[in-house]
Every structure is written in C-alpha cells, then in structure tokens.
Design a protein around this nucleic acid. Sequence first.
RNA 1: GCCGGAGUGGCGGAAUUGGCAGACGCAGCAGACUCAAAAUCUGCCGGGGAUCACUCCUCGUGAGGGUUCAAGUCCCUCCUCCGGCACCA
Length: 813
Amino acid sequence: MPEKHYDHNHIELKWHARWENAGFYRAEENSARPKFYVLEMLPYPSGTLHIGHIRNYAIGDALARYKWMRGYNVLHPMGWDAFGLPAENAAIANRTPPREWTRQNIAAMKKTHRRFAFSYDWEREVSTCEPEYYRWNQWFFLKMLERGLTYRKRALVNWCPQCATVLANEQVVEGCCWRHEGTPVEQRALEQWFLKITNYADQLLNDMAGLEEGWPERVLTMQRNWIGRSEGAEVDFHLAETGEPIRVFTTRVDTIYGATCVILAPEHPLNETLLDAAGKARAKAMVDARANRDPGDIEKEGFVTGHFAVNPYSGERIPIWVANFVLMGYGTGAIMAVPAHDERDFEFCRKYDITVRPVIRPVDGALAIEPGMERTFTDDGIVENSGPWSGLPSEEARRQMAAHASARGFGKAAVTYRLKDWGISRQRYWGTPIPVIHCPVCGVVPVPEDQLPVILPDRIEITGSGRSPLENVPEFVNVACPRCGGKAKRETDTMDTFIDSSWYFYRYCDPRNGTMPFDPAKIAYWFEIDQYIGGVEHAILHLIYSRFFTKVMRDLGLVRNSEPVRRLFTQGMVIAEGAKMSKSKGNVVGADPLAEKFGADTARMFVLFGGPPEREVDWRQDGAEGIYRFLGRVYRFVTRNVGHAAGMPGTADKKVLRKLHQTVKKITGDFETRWHFNTCIASIMELVNVLYAEEERISGVAMAEILEKLALMLAPFAPYLSQEIWEELGRDGPVFRQSWPEFDAELAKEDLAEIVVQVNGKLRSHIHVPFGTAPAELEALARADGKVQPFLAGKQVVKVIAVPDKLVNMVVK
RNA sequence: GCCGGAGUGGCGGAAUUGGCAGACGCAGCAGACUCAAAAUCUGCCGGGGAUCACUCCUCGUGAGGGUUCAAGUCCCUCCUCCGGCACCA
C-alpha cells in the first residue's frame, strides 16, 4: 500500500468526533474485574490548560490506559476546584458574576481536556462551587461541630492586604502572602472558625509509617516537619512575689539547674500585670517589628521585667525577661533560658551578660568551666550540680524529673506540636457559606441539617473592600433563629477552599448522591486511591488536610480506610525554553495552540519523553518537532506495510521480532515499577529504527504481528495515532480496550551472550558464547582472543574474575 | 544553619542489581533525492592522539581522596544549583 502523510489534525479530529459521546471510559459499579483508582489533582478553573497540566494528565492517562488494557476496572475521574479568589477578582475587574465566569472557564477547559482525549469518566465530573457539592462541606462542618472538632475563637490572624482576607498559617511564606510575594502579612484580631486538626496530630504522624512504601520520602519528611512533634515537659516556675505559676515548655528538663532566667514572649498575658506602661510599649513594638520579618534576620532583643521567678527544683530566684525570640504561638509562650546548653539562649544571655552555668558534661569529658564557657554543649550527657539528679544520664534525668514534677503537681511530661488548628474562615464571597446562625438570645446556632444547603446568593455586589460582600445581602443575612424563632443573622464567613479539595475524591465514587455525601458501600469498593498524581507544591497543605478529613470520616463511620491515598506520585514542573512559565513573562505554553499545531499525541509524548516524570521538563519547540517527526515515521511505515506482500523473504524476522519482544518487555516492566516513560518511548524509537533498516526483509506474518503490537504499545502514549493505526490494520473497536501485548521471554533473548573482556579493568575485546558458559571456559576463550593477547604478552596473570553471561577481567602484572 | 534532591557531550537525557559511559531525541556536519528549496532517507557527531583504511590507543560522568579485579553507581571531605524547614525552646 502507498504510504500516507501524517496529518495530525485530520486523524485527531476524526477520532475526537467519533469518541465524543461514546462513554468508553465509564467505570463499572459492579465488576468482577479488579479495581484501579487513578487520580490526578483537580485543577482550578482558570480558563486555560497549559503544558504543565498536560504533563500531569498525560502521566495519569498513560497509567489508566495501561491498566484498562491489563483488564482492570479503572476509575479515572476529573473535576474542578471551582471556588477561589480569581473568580472574585475577575468579577471586580470585568463585572462578570463569579459563577458565570467559573462555568465559562470550566467549559473552555473541558473542551481542551476532550481535545486531548484524556480518558476521564465525565459522568462523574464534580464542580466544587455547585450547591450539590458544597452542601456536603456544610454537612461535614456540622458533623465536626457536633463532635467538638469545630470551634470559634478570637485570634490574631494573618491578613493579606492584597487579597483582603485572612490567610492560614500555611499560606504565609516568609512573612508574606503565598500569592503575593513581597506583600507583608498584617496581624488582625477576628472571630474565626477552626477545625481541630491537632486532635489528630499523632495519628497523622504515626500513620505515615504505612505510607513509606507508596509516598515519596520527601513529602513524608515535609509533613513530619510540619506536624513538628516534640517531646518534653511542662514545668511551673513561680512568681517570687505572689507564687503565681509561669508555665514553660522544655525538651531539656535535665538542664533546669542551669536555667539562669525565665523569658516571656512579648504577647504573653502575664505581661499585662508584670509590665509598666513603658514595658508594655516595648513589648508591643517587638510584636510589630516581628510581624513581617524573616525570623532569621531579627536580632535577639529583650529587657528585664524587674520581677523574679523561683525554680521549682532548686528554689533559686532568677530574673524574668521579655524577649522577641520567644514565640507565643508555640509551647506555653514562656521559656527557661539555659544558655550553657542551648544555642539561642546562649546568644541571648551573652548579649545581656546573663550568667552561663553548665550542668551537663559530655559522657567522656569534664564539665565546662562556668565563667569562660565559649560554646554551648547541646548534646545529651551526664547531669551535674543538679541536686539529687546529679550523676544521671540526660535521658534518665528527664524521665525522673518529669515524674517528680508530676508527683509534686508543678508540671508533667508533655508533647507539643508545631501543627496548629486549621483556621477555615474567609471574609470572602466566593466560597462555601459556613452553616451557622448568630442569635442574640441563643448564641451560635447550627443550621439544621434539613435546611442545607445554605445557598450562596448569586446576584451580589463585589467590591473587594475587605469585609465579606455577603454582609450587604439582607435576604441572606437576616434569618429567623432555628431554635427560638427570633430575629437572627447568618454567619457571613465562607470556608477555606482547601475544604473542597479535602474530600472531593470520595464524591467521585458517588457524584450524584442527593441524600449523603456518598454511599459508604461505594467507597468501600473504590478506596484507597491506588495512584494519586500531582505537583509537589501540595505536599503539605492539601495532602495533610485530606488525610485529616479521611480520619474524621472514618470516625463518623463513613469510610473504613484511615488514609485516602495508597500511592502518591509528584511530577516535576514544566518550564518553557529554559525559563519558568508565568503569566507576567508571557511564556505560558497553552494546550490549545499545541493541539492545533502539533496535535495532542505529540504534546503528550513530548512531555513524557523529555525526562523521567518526577523531574523538571523543558518544553522546547524543536524537541516537539522531533516527536512529530517520529509519529510521522511510524505512520508512514504502518501505512505502506499494511498489505505487506506475503512474498517478502523474512530473513530479518528473527532480529526484528526479537527487538519487538524486547520492547514490549521493557515497557511492561516500566509500567509495573518505575514509570520511566522517557526510556519507554526511546525504546519504541529504537524499534522503529530497526524496522526501517530491515523493512525489505520482514515476512508478511512477522509484519502483521509487529504492526499490531506497535499500535497497542503506543496506545497509552499516543491514543489517537494508535487508534488510527488500529483502523488501518482493519481492526474494530477502541484500541485501549484491547489486551496489552504479551511478550515471549524466549523470543526476546539474544542467541549468544556477549562477554566483555577486560585486562586490568580496561575493555579489550568482546566474545560471544552460549548463555551459561562456565567461568573456566570463559577464561580460556578470553586468553585465546586475538585482541587480548597483546595485553597479556610478557605479563603474568595474577587473578581472573569471570562472571557468566557478563564479563571476564584478567589482572596482570 | 538544618533536612532532602541533583550535578554525565553543544542541549534534554540513558546506563533498572558495582560490570562495555553517552541509548533515544534535539542541535550540528556530510551525502542521496530535487531545476531548487522544503519534506524524506542514509551516514557522522565527548576531548586528545595514531592510522591510507577496517580500526587502534588514551583521557573523560562537579573537585579531591578512598574501597574494589572493576565506581557515573558504594564510602569520606569539599564546591555549585534546586526544593523544603528555619529563633519550635
């Protein structure tokens, strides 16, 4: 048959039209086949997909298609993280209502998704800004309220003047807003809603042991640091004048005889009574100075209060200071300073000439000399000059001293976390309304379940003034109290959008359920997620919140699994022609123009070929052209060989079939283990290079097998071309519903083993021998080899290493 | 400062378990086809050297040391880049 020119638009648009409503990718509810749940992180509907999205989805899609061909019942859904600030900003900028703006964007992006033929079950599509979805955010909120996991408190919060909203601690990066680099975060006091994620701190930490198999170590480390569990003791010092306790947290009670002052955070409540007006002013100045600064840059400063504290162990009176490096937000907001055994305390005390008193000596050394001590000793050692505990090793001392405090009632062993409760209140319009009502008589009253969802009103004025725009909607705000029936007001805060993404993957399993967030039986079938794929930027926030939600849902009896995600894969970024893509640089590589210019198959294959999936990939125009050439090469080969004459000699059959089976073997192995799709595609290229070289010497029978398997192997990477080839071969049905090609391990094997011959570790020759040839024979053949002998002449062979099927190395003198 | 990850041709990368460094692609060079160009096909393509030539020698994976018959791969010291954390008591 004459070869055909590869016209990507012709081929892709043809199949696109045929596939449009075919529903090929529907997951089955009751299937005898094993299930596989593969998920890519859902996008924010910004309006366009770029090459970075394509990479994320191409990885997931390759896996989904492979699993399909392997006979799995695959769940591969997609949805929209549809609440968020950009919709409000767009509303302010061009007066498009957020809902309309969002829906338009979703429509545009979905079109691109379909153009790329990602294998999603669109019947399960979820959009988080629709009441059918967010009512369950409200429902979960109320369930947590019932269980005491939701609470309200007045708190100093991070306020970004650009966003005009509150930020979670996690959204503050080096004192600035995570979305607006260089915009310092301000501190404001507001009544906020919180979720008690700290109740689950230990579970979140301990359950990570079960994730080590399937999650990147890096992500687990980041989560461990984020939770920041720290074991130690809480101990009360006492105000000398009144005996009032000042509680401190320390991980080193064993050093307490070396405490030479107590230091309070500038915000510490005790300052109200301890400090005079001038002192309070200094403390306040410290708080303000600290608010926006990189903590590492701030020099330690402090001042004496003039008051004294009593050490509960030694009875010693030590001065009380206030200093900027003590944080109110961690531990108890007060510390004991032990300069001899803590870097920070040392730096501070040296600056202010506070006594440095060593009380720990190295296990094999002497106690440092008190006045001239030059460095801190922060390791564990032997406790000295510490009353009854002298002579104990640090660890033992800590245990006994904590027990002592507990017995005497002035302290206890304690654990502190860096993790804070999750502040979910946002003073914003475009989010899930928090379902409570403020009644002047009854107080805070939850919206009864049967009144959910609390609908976000559509026609409102968005000004970006800072307060929630919902406050200006009387028909939303003014309600009757569900408890007493009197006049009351609705809560106008909306929820952090991380709530939406904390459980969306459960909703995919039962997306249209109107009476429950989902049917637990369906979750029991589909969960855990077998493979989750997304950017590493979500390593902490999204993935910790999701894990937290899962544990709460488990405790509510909704799910049986304690973790949502069995395996996590974090793919690398895509950069463009060597530079990070950004709107401001105008170098964002959009998906739509790519499809038009090169086709979806080329774009997908390029991002898979550019490097291993966990690493960064550089989008390069000429690189994409290379992939395009390759696809054309495949297509031309197939089309001119479809009716391959039966009379061809077939002298190259053995060689070519061997290469074919080696290729199938290699790709199969990669899908099952390490996902190096770049080398998978390289191996298909190698195969095609061999096919071009041997084209005239391939029999009709061999050619038929080659073309079929080539089509099947390409299916996960280039679905359009693969389907087109399938049709050229005269075959019916979707190619990705065929079985993944088998390989014959015997056929894939070479006839002879190639043995590397080295002399003193340097390559000198190759010999070919049957597999399994014994070492002694290998040595004999190697010694006899013509290329090797010059290197042996006049030398003495002192040692021979012969590894069957691999190499012979002769060591000579 | 602490914890990760990375460093290989002009470029992206390959080498899966310590065993032939540079697969595959891009760029480049040369040839074929063409009136010409594009497209396509073929060959060459780390540095230095030897050879009419088939080829051969030698150096070479950020730097320096080490282990080993053998190191891109393992160990130690250091440099650079990227990511995370960073007064967390």
